[in-house]
Every structure is written in C-alpha cells, then in structure tokens.
C-alpha cells in the first residue's frame, strides 16, 4: 500500500563547466496499486528516474517519498523495493530457488510463512513450479525474466520497479509476458513503475503513463488521454502516428476558424480569441478519402501493409503526412478531414 511521490527531482552530472542534465525538475505521483509507466526515447531520463526511486542515484535536488515518508537519504537495501532489470541480473552461481529466496535473507516472508513455502508460492505465481533446482543459464530468456520477477516479488516489496524488463525478448514472447505481468500486478495490487521506450507497450499495459523527454515530464495521464489528447508536439509525434500542421489564422467565425497552411486553407473548430498561429495534429484514421472538407493531395513515399490497413507515409507542401488507408494507394492520394477530428497542440 504505497503511494510514490517525486517532487522537483533534478539530477546533474559533471562539473559546472561540463554539466549534463539528466533530470530537470521531475514531479510525479504514482498512486497506490497503480501500474505507472515512464516512456520516452533513449536518454530522456526515464531510467534515471527509476534509479532515483530505487536509491541507486541520489537526486541533485528534490525529494522522493514513499507514502509521504522522505526516502532520499535511505540506501536502496532499506527501501523495500523490488526491481527487475532488462538483463534480469540473475545470480548465475545460485539456483533458481536460491535466487528467488535471496531477498528473504534480509526481509521475513509475509504472513509468517517459511522461506521454502514463499519461494514455491512465487515460482507457482510465475508458472515455474518445479524449476527451483535449475541453474539460471539452463532457462530460456522468458523463463529467466519470470525468475527475476519472482525474485523481486518474494519479499513482498512496497514498490515494484521494472526497467525495460521485456525488451530483450522476441515480439511474440514479449506480448504474452506483458499480459502475464499485468495479470500478476493486478492480482498483487502492487504499486508498479515500469520503464520502456516502446510507446505501444506503454499504452497497452499502463493505468497511467508519463511521457518524458530531455529530463522533463511532457505529459501524465491514462493511455486514452495521452493518445487522443497529446499535450505537446513531442507527445503527439512520439506516441502513435500523427500528422502535425503549423498554420496561421486567417479568419475567425462564431463556430470555427479558417487557418492557412502553406497555400491551402483549412476549416478548424473555434479557437481562443486572439489566436494568430496554431499547431494541430490529426491521427492517421481521421484523414480519409471520402471526407469532403479540408482536402489535400498527398504524394506517397512509402506504404506498409499491416493487415487490417495500410500505413502510408507521404508528403504535402513539405509536411510529413501519415495515413491509415484500407487499400494500397496510387502515387498520389487525396484525403480530407473533419474539423471536429482536429486536436490543437499549441496556439499563440
């Protein structure tokens, strides 16, 4: 039962002259029992954030608190956390059971159970019953991953931290383990922080997620909100496919605005009064061939056949366009969009 709170966490490396900023004022609240994901491109600070929560990094400024209790000065071994790394970091000189039982040398098993019972229980939880005597290198990658998870969960930690635990696995295994991970997490109802660079994975698995870029949090919210209402241009471009237009308001009416993008003019929904320029985005599905408003003719660059639909990368007026069509287009394709499908990113 733990709520995690980060306030103004900054992390800088190096000297004053040659300083690298890894985190610049991160504020986050992870609710009790929540599956919370940090997602962003490599170098965005998501792993540093996780390591700061674990206590392997000391923030230059700011505080980390578990249930309101400041943790900043507490060493990792006293934080009551479980962590799973991308490399799993199983102890190769110990058997699977010894790996899972290692944390129970320092923390008593929950509910007064014996160590052996707890280890067996955890192995069962991750579908590895009877594998306890194996050596880690006798297991497949997916099995090793589950041992690492069992090991992290054995002492019943307050907080589960997962650092790209699935990215060393192949796509199919990754998806099945993702489901299993989510199932175990919701069964145990344990507060979980998950780090990944894969936005699709982040959307699929999380209760809420934080999109990070260059050491700052761009947006926090549930997956639907992140997907449909990106708060910044970065989020729009990083999460899912989006076409972003930059335009200049040419005319405002009571129920909408007319915006000039290049030499075309689009109908948009109403904008705040006094808006001069606007950036807005459109999901691939909203740009359709049969829409009768806001039509543009896109020069097709590449097509990717994805089964249900075809993802088309094209270009119009120097703007990169992403479309989701039902069939392969010819060299050019004319599409349009309805004003109500537009999501406005920023105005000035």
């Amino acid at each position: 039962m733990t709520e995690l709170r980060l306030e103004g966490v900054s992390k800088r490396y190096g000297t004053d002259d040659d300083e690298t900023v890894a985190l610049a004022g991160v504020d986050l609240t992870v609710r009790d029992g929540e599956f919370f994901t940090l997602v962003g491109p490599s170098g965005c600070g998501k792993t540093t954030t996780l390591r700061t929560i674990a206590g392997f990094e000391t923030p230059t400024e700011g505080t980390v608190a578990f249930d309101g209790e400041a943790m900043t000065a507490v060493p990792p071994e006293d934080r009551d956390i479980g962590i799973v790394f991308q490399s799993y970091a199983l102890f190769p000189h110990m058997s699977v059971a010894e790996n899972v039982g290692y944390g129970l040398e320092f923390r008593d098993p929950p509910d007064g159970r014996s160590v052996d019972d707890r280890v067996a229980e955890l192995l069962e939880l991750v579908d590895l019953s009877g594998m306890g005597e194996r050596a880690p290198d006798q297991l497949s990658g997916g099995q090793q991953q589950r041992v690492a998870l069992a090991r992290a969960l054995a002492p019943a930690p307050d907080l589960l931290l997962l650092d790209e635990p699935l990215s060393a696995l192949d796509a199919q295994l990754r998806e099945s383990l993702r489901l299993q991970l989510k199932r175990i997490q919701s069964t145990l109802d344990i507060t979980t922080v998950y780090v990944t660079h894969d936005q699709e994975e982040a959307l699929a698995i999380s209760d809420r997620l934080a999109v990070m870029s260059a050491g700052t949090v761009e947006q926090v919210g549930p997956p639907q909100e992140i997907y449909h209402e990106p708060a910044t241009r970065f989020v729009a471009e990083f999460v899912g496919d989006n076409t972003v237009f930059d335009g200049r308001v040419s005319e405002t009416t009571a129920d909408g605005a007319r915006v000039a993008v290049g030499d075309a003019t689009f109908d948009l929904p109403a904008l705040p009064p006094g808006t001069e320029t606007v950036s807005f985005c459109l999901r691939p599905g909203t740009l359709t061939r049969d829409a009768d408003r806001n039509r543009v003719t896109v020069a097709v660059d590449t097509c990717e056949f994805l089964g249900e639909r075809v993802r088309v990368h094209g270009r119009w007026n120097g703007t990169a366009i992403v479309l989701g069509l039902e069939s392969m287009p010819p060299e050019t394709v004319t599409v349009g969009f309805a004003p109500e499908d537009v999501h406005v990113l920023e105005t000035s």
């Binding site: 060493p75 990792p76 071994e77 479980g82 799993y88 970091a89 000189h93 290692y102 320092f106 931290l161």
Partner: peptide, 24 residues
Amino acid sequence: AMVESARALGASRYRALLDVELPL
C-alpha cells in the same frame, strides 16, 4: 544490475560483495 538487484532485495553493499561479486 547484479549488485543493484541484491541491494534492492535488502543486501548491504558489503553483503552484495560477499554474496554476489566474490563468488562470481
């Protein structure tokens, strides 16, 4: 990550050295 795993599980830095690094 090996040492960090041990520490997250509750081992002090010294115990991690004894239990994980030296045997390896």
